[in-house]
Amino acid sequence: MNKLKFFVAALLMIVAGTASAQKTGYISVEQVISLMPETTRIDSLLRKYQSDSLNPQFTYMVQEYNRKDSMVSTKDSVKLSAQVKNQIRQELEGYAYQIQNWQQITQQALQGKQQELLEPIYRKVEAAIQGTAKENGYAYVLNREALIVVPPADDLLPLVAKKLNLKVPAAGAPAAAAAPRR
């Protein structure tokens, strides 16, 4: 029985020693994303998406609303059956709702498009972080934004930036514009 207790105690000491020897690092994923040259391209693609796709949709909805509203509010509306008038009024309610909530609809569409465009960049950054951690013996890598106190030596940003061929601004220099959140 004493041999078993000794064995368990020795095993626990070995496990504890191994666990304490594992390195833990941290990185700001958002900062890496903001350094990526693809981020600038994504910003311009989002602006183009808004001007080429979303703005014309809004213009079309307003035009359709006005056209259908004039169909039921002019003298000629007496020629329309009650069923047709009700259908047009229902369509008008739908257009009115979309027009009133256009800002929210646009924001959701832009966020969806942004997420679609950022997904490959996040995968690339994640692969670089995982590769860097493995190459440098880090068992755990935490997101910098979740930590309050961090030792500078465990910041993986310079190593990941090097792996991705990115230039990290000097500590006192202003960083690139923050990348949009997913």
Rank of each mutant, 00 (worst) to 15 (best):
K162I: 05
K23Y: 03
Q100C: 02
Q63C: 03
Q22F: 15
V125M: 07
Q108R: 11
S51F: 03
Q111G: 10
Q50Y: 06
Q90R: 09
K23W: 04
I99K: 01
L35W: 01
Y60V: 09
G131N: 09
Q63A: 14
T18G: 15
N136D: 07
A178D: 08
V149E: 00
L4M: 10
A10C: 07
A10K: 04
L46G: 05
Q50L: 03
P169H: 07
A19D: 06
Q22C: 15
Q100P: 01
S53I: 12
I33R: 15
A173E: 15
D155C: 05
P180D: 08
Y138W: 04
M71F: 11
M71K: 13
K79E: 14
E119H: 14
V160G: 07
R123H: 13
D154W: 02
S70Y: 02
A173H: 05
K163H: 09
Q98C: 04
P152Y: 01
S81D: 15
I121Y: 01
A21G: 12
V84Q: 10
A173Q: 13
G172Y: 09
G94C: 05
R144P: 08
A177F: 01
S51T: 12
N55W: 00
Q104D: 06
T40K: 15
L92F: 04
I129F: 01
V149I: 09
Q115L: 08
T59R: 10
T18Q: 13
V84G: 02
L54K: 04
Y26I: 05
K75V: 15
L159G: 03
Q114S: 14
I33K: 13
E116S: 13
K68T: 08
A175T: 09
L46W: 06
Q114V: 03
K162Y: 00
Q87L: 03
G131R: 00
E30T: 15
A139R: 00
L147P: 05
A128E: 07
Q107R: 12
K5L: 06
F6L: 13
A10V: 00
Y97F: 11
Q87H: 04
A109L: 10
Q100N: 14
Y97D: 11
A133H: 04
V84S: 07
R41V: 11
Y122M: 11
E135C: 05
K3T: 10
L159H: 06
Y122I: 10
A82F: 08
P56Q: 06
N55T: 11
Q87S: 12
L142C: 08
K162S: 11
A179C: 10
D69R: 15
Q104A: 13
D155G: 04
K5A: 01
P158A: 10
P120F: 05
S51M: 09
Y49M: 05
Q115H: 12
P158S: 09
R47I: 06
D154R: 09
T18P: 02
L35F: 01
I99V: 02
L157N: 05
Y60A: 13
Q87W: 00
A127C: 03
G25E: 03
K48Y: 01
K134Y: 04
L157Q: 09
D154C: 02
E93F: 10
Y60R: 14
R89V: 11
V160Q: 08
E145D: 13
A10D: 00
L142T: 00
D43F: 06
A128R: 04
E145R: 09
T59I: 12
L11W: 01
E135K: 07
M13T: 11
V62R: 15
N55Q: 12
P169Y: 02
T59E: 14
R144W: 07
